[in-house]
Design a protein around this nucleic acid. Structure first.
Lengths: 295, 295
DNA sequence: TTGTATGCGTTATCAT
DNA sequence: ATGATAACGCATACAA
């Protein structure tokens, strides 16, 4: 054809924009600076572009009109949206997921919608078993906010401990926030002040662990001689610390790629597409932050 | 008005999309996972959204048609484009910059176009002076690839050394790559093998320094007792290492915000807008990676 | 097969 | 002022 394509005119005509929305917002407006999510997003972007789709960020209150997420997607005629790192209880998010726009969520399952999930059950099982094999029976767990991810990890933590005959006192389980070193520092202090101190602390993620690390150092303790620790995510940072952090590597590349592939499949084959949940395996990354102890 | 706005129809009619293009590509397809740039981009995104603009990623080869950057922008009717972390010698980039589409570049200046620049001259001056004050006179510099940024840093490095009466042997200056621990590791090894070894090594960025750190450890040397080091960027990682890395903090928040503000100003006020270069100051972040030595 | 007219949703223009 | 209408660029449906 002898003309230069114009996406707006084409979208107007066909009702297809070849544009995917990306809803990546966390509380602190730092979605993109979150290493785990920026890796997932990068992978999503690469795969989407390979399949001929552009990417637009979705947010609320764009310009003159105050729009919610769903309206913003309609405004931009997004063919589909990937949702991650948001408050999944937000009514605006739920409205979007329940709408006619295809969505894929990451790390959260909505009824009968497609979700890409990191294996939060297997991960906690493997980590706890790893600790148990090294003689740890007093294991504390600092978890993130009450999300679906946290619920799965907590359940898997308790279940695995039970299977191994490990007793978990209530005060060994502390609530903190994901990606927030401060709250993990606080929880760490409380754990260290216990009369019957744990021999190992599991953190909600590698980034949060930094808060715990600082607290542990401040108390004059050393890792792993005085206390063992594990992280979660396997971000670059975790492998650069000394000692290296023993953690769980989430396959961010696969998470993003799968999300893009499934979303686009839902868009181009709406009739044959079956919503499903894809579980992406990860693997334990052994560092030097867990000491083998005599039991 | 009684209808729901449709961006495609509006853009078709007005030739304004309220959409900004983002061209962020590095060699390794890892634009978003680059901590420095992901922070700049996040800040850009926040400011753009505040001013009512959406963001779309620009890349080549979208879908069926093979488009270059300029064509992709036209295809999406981007009102303007921010360009960073690319090969600024790429003809496709130059074509875009020379086009009628308003652009803002980060860390590179094109003739008579707007650019947002981190202060690469001041930074090297301050870092070298800091080292000099601590007795260092044998300072090696591992620099990134031959970009405008590198040229400025190199010139400032040589100039400051000259002013301070520091002699810089040619083999104290090594070429490596930005954001690439491997090449910095190699350069580090070469420096450590010199008969007249430097007392301090300056790295192209904090991330690359990790490669150097591993090499230094491998040789059984310790930082800062056996050798001092400085980084560049001031990413989170640098402040979590032990010892903390002495580095230069680039104000990513301001860089992104300024880029969005200037780009949007160029779009909404094309008649009164004057292209200019904005220099964003940074600051030295003192860590513990530089030892004071007797001279 | 090749060509031509219609309409997608919006805004701008023009007539009232 | 207010309201009807054409045009933006493309795809599609229909006519030749």
């Amino acid at each position: 054809m002898g003309y230069f394509p114009d996406a707006t005119a084409r979208a107007l005509k066909t009702n297809r924009s070849n544009n995917l929305g990306v809803l990546f917002v966390d509380q602190t407006q730092s979605g993109l600076t979150h290493e785990y999510f920026s890796h997932v997003l990068n992978s999503f972007k690469v795969e989407a572009e390979r399949l001929g789709f552009d990417i637009t960020f979705i947010s609320r209150n764009i310009g003159e009109f105050g729009m919610n997420y769903y309206e913003h997607c309609k405004y931009r005629k997004c063919d589909g949206v990937v949702i991650a790192s948001v408050d999944f209880n937000d009514p605006a998010v739920i409205e979007l997921v329940r709408s006619e726009i295809p969505t894929v969520t990451i790390d959260h399952v909505f009824d009968n919608r497609t979700a890409i999930l990191s294996d939060n059950v297997q991960s906690m099982h493997d980590l706890v078993c790893y600790l148990y094999e090294r003689g740890h029976k007093k294991i504390a767990f600092i978890h993130g906010e009450e999300t679906a991810v946290t619920k799965k990890r907590l359940a898997s933590f308790y279940k695995t401990c039970e299977e191994l005959g490990i007793d978990v006192p209530d005060n060994y389980v502390k609530a903190a926030l994901f990606h927030d070193p401060k709250s993990s520092a606080l929880a760490t202090r409380e754990l260290l002040e216990l009369s019957d101190r744990p021999t190992c602390i599991m953190y909600p993620d590698d980034f949060s662990f930094i808060g715990g690390m600082n607290e542990i150092e401040k108390q004059g303790l050393s890792i792993p001689d005085d206390i063992s620790v594990t992280g979660y995510d396997g971000i670059y940072l975790s492998q650069v610390l000394r000692p290296k952090l023993t953690t769980w590597r989430q396959d961010t590349e696969a998470l993003g790629r799968e999300a893009a592939a499934k979303l686009i499949e839902a868009i181009v084959s709406p009739k044959t597409f079956i919503p499903r949940q894809v579980i992406v395996p990860g693997r334990l990354l052994e560092g030097g932050s867990v000491k083998a102890i005599d039991s």
